[in-house]
Structure formats: C-alpha cells, structure tokens
Amino acid sequence: MKCSQVIENLGSYCRRELSDGETHALEEHLASCPQCKKEHQLTARVMGDLAGVERIEPREDFSLRLSEKIDQWEARKRLFWLGALAGFIRSNRRVLATAAAVFVVSLVTSVLVIQQVGPGRGADMMSESGYKGEAVEGIAAGDFAMREIQQQASTDSDSVYMHYVTGDRPAYPGEEFEDYVYRPVVRTVSGSGQTF
C-alpha cells in the first residue's frame, strides 16, 4: 500500500471501517513507515476529539415549550376548520338557504302525506289494484315495504305474479282501518302454477 493510500484511509482505519485485508495491508505499511505512523497518531487524535466533541443538553423546559407549541397548533387547526366552514357558509349562503328551504318543505310534505295515507296503506292499495311484481313476504309493514315493492317492480319480469293470502293482524295503534288484515304474500311462476 502506498503512503497516499494509507493517508487517505487513516480515518476509516481509526473508525474500524476497513476490511480485514485493507487493515492488514495498512498496518504492515505503518510498521515500516515512520511518516505515516506519525500521520496515524495525528489522525487518531483528531478522530478521538471529533467523537468527543462538546455535547449539549436540551433546555429543561424543552418538552414543555414543545407541548405548548403543539397545543397552539391544534387550536389553530380547529379554528382553521371552523373558519373554513364559516367562509363556505358565507360564500354559498343563497344556495344553502334554498337547499334548506327545499329540505324543510319536503320534510313537512312527507309528514303530511304519511298522516293522510297511514303506514301500510300503500301496500293495500297496490294489492287492490292488482299490482304485479315480485313477491315479498310480510308485506304489510308500512311504507318501507311499499318502497321495496316499488323498487322491485321496476326490475321485475312478466313471468312472476303476486298473489295475496289474507290473514289476521292486529291494527296499528291509531290506524283507521280496524278490519285491516295481515297479507302474507306467496308468489307463483306464471304458467307453471308452482308456489314458493
């Protein structure tokens, strides 16, 4: 190993970063070269001082100050979202007012319609008019059941028909029709007469 190579690798040698082969070659050279040996002594001293360079400790209130900064940031973040929401409302107040009005009117209308028609009445009306659709068991369950029938009717095929069998059911509280009957549903496939 040449002197220039040794000098270049002295730092790594002091940090034990060289391979076994490199270390061996370098040590052989150091044993026979007084100048490189002196350079090694200087390098070792510099490396030692570098490793032992002054360390400082964080100030005692480091965590406390950091915690306060985080709290402030969290508060600002909350304010930001509130501010963003307020800004959105301000800039879209006409649209939002219209949407709110439509919502309220729809709500009131729905309540009035439900009061007029009554729960489950929709299913009765459909059965009376010979509604054709896929069978749903326990149909007399009010508006929810009616909605299901309407949804299914749109995808139904002509080959499936509904037949209703009447049965007794207690009236809903406050229901107008005291003779209201429970109408479980069975369905048959058209033509085959199969019931399932």
Binding site: C3, G11, L42
Partner: peptide
Amino acid sequence: RINRGRMRVKEILRPYYGSEDSGGMS
C-alpha cells in the same frame, strides 16, 4: 465526503496539535 471532511478537519487542526504530531507526507 466523509473521508474528505475528515482530512480537511485534520489539516485545519494540524498546526494546533503540537509539532510531535505533524509530519510530512511521502
């Protein structure tokens, strides 16, 4: 960069680390 940095630091400190440590290069 680490190697060059080490050598630079050594050259900067050479004058302060006593004459017994300083030596010429071949």
